[in-house]
Design a protein around this nucleic acid. Sequence first.
DNA 1: GCTAGAATATAGCATATGCTATATCAAGCA
DNA 2: TGCTTGATATAGCATATGCTATATTCTAGC
Lengths: 160, 160
Amino acid sequence: MGRGAADKANAAEAAEAGGQLADVESQAESFRRARRARRSELVDDYVELIADLIADGGEARQVDIAARLGVAQPTVAKMLKRLTEEGLVTQRPYRGVFLTAEGQDLADRSRRRHHIVESFLLAVGVDPEHARLDTEGIEHHVSDATLAVFARFVKEAGKP
Amino acid sequence: MGRGAADKANAAEAAEAGGQLADVESQAESFRRARRARRSELVDDYVELIADLIADGGEARQVDIAARLGVAQPTVAKMLKRLTEEGLVTQRPYRGVFLTAEGQDLADRSRRRHHIVESFLLAVGVDPEHARLDTEGIEHHVSDATLAVFARFVKEAGKP
DNA sequence: GCTAGAATATAGCATATGCTATATCAAGCA
DNA sequence: TGCTTGATATAGCATATGCTATATTCTAGC
């Protein structure tokens, strides 16, 4: 046997020391979750932005999406292809992009989540600029349970 | 000129409608920030975990890191190579991994940040399990300004 | 209708992060 | 000492997300 024997000793030690380290499988699940979230957050961002652009100007063009996301136009084109394959948007060659019913649904949910997180940060005392910046990253990692707590907090803070 | 002329009209329209859409450059900066954070969050996770394993059992082995991150061992090996190149960890072939001073510093900062976020979620009423899960994703997207607000909130909540 | 300029499509490349399969090394035990 | 077994190293592949360069198409204005 190699050095594996240390494992049990370590576990016992950790338990005695107060269990700083969480359960292995549980921790692994956290990280898997975070990786999954990372994969889907781009999709959310695109769909949410497309919905905003359509609501705002009637159409969503690749150049505008690219400018707002801070990426190059071919990057957007490639992602739109993927979104089309996933049934979230529809595209006609050389035309604007539109959301399917499913895409619109996802956009609505994303927008709601985004709004709750940003409102919460503001309610808790974060300045508007940082609230806006941080929300863009945080929103994708907030579970439904946590989101509910945030929403309640905002509601309570609104009527003191 | 193509359809670019619609831009100004859209902007004006948005302004009149209440400015739902943020400034283009500002929004692009948010997304760029989020992408940057995404790149560095894995590094933070590794370094933080390595520090925990060393503190807990005296050494950080690839198999343990892999098990806790929920990835395969070669994935860890590849990442450790990168961390070594960045001067955050030291490696001797077929031996455990150790942190450089710089790595230890990053681990300390990550751990502090992690702790503040998790404490904040608990203080605001999130259940422990979701607090732990969500913290893993959120911690990397919290600016210093927001972190300070979280810390203050935890402190206030502690002594009512 | 043509044409010029803007937008989109496509090709090809780079990097990062995963994986499986397999070779190599280290350490305990017969 | 040599063998067995667990850990690490390495090769090769896949996918996702970026980029630049370039071809194609649309639209507006003449």
